[in-house]
């Protein structure tokens, strides 16, 4: 598995969420994703970027284009140094929310991705990794 391209964007404001969507779209297009696959990962990115901003108090996302012939993919790693999540299982359940939104953020992002993992420590922060392949 080879890294084709990597970039890091800050998530500090609502405008940054828009920028994360645009950068994710750019990467998905560059990797030759179909329109539906593009839309799925961009939507997942939007959900997770908003989580990073709202619950993590801001952070950053690393966007990586991957090549693992014949597959090509995009991986996103969202990192924040916020309060962390005490009960990850509960946070993943639909309808769970501690803020605005429908509580579809984490679970929805997981359904829209091929790979999903989350690491969180209370008081230290949260890191969510997703990847989608074509």
């Amino acid at each position: 598995m080879a890294v084709v391209h990597r970039s890091v964007l800050p998530i500090r404001s609502q405008e940054d969420i828009v920028r994360v969507r645009q950068a994710t779209r750019e990467s998905a297009v560059a990797q030759g994703f179909s329109l539906v696959d593009q839309t799925k990962i961009v939507t997942a990115a939007s959900e997770l970027a908003r989580n990073t901003l709202d619950y993590g108090g801001g952070g950053e996302v690393e966007i990586t284009r991957l090549s693992d012939p014949p597959r090509r993919g995009v991986r996103l790693v969202f990192t924040d140094k916020g309060p962390g999540i005490a009960d990850v299982g509960q946070a993943l359940a639909d309808g769970f929310t501690s803020g605005r939104g429908l509580g579809l953020g984490l679970g929805g992002a997981r359904r829209l991705s091929n790979e999903f993992s989350i690491e969180s420590r209370v008081g230290e922060g949260t890191q969510v990794t997703i990847a989608r392949w074509r």
């Binding site: 539906v36 839309t39 799925k40 579809l104 679970g107 929805g108 359904r111 829209l112």
Partner: peptide
């Protein structure tokens, strides 16, 4: 609503 958006919304659970 565009097809790709409709499919994504349903997958999202919305």
């Amino acid at each position: 609503i565009q097809p790709a958006v409709a499919i994504t919304l349903v997958e999202l659970g919305l």
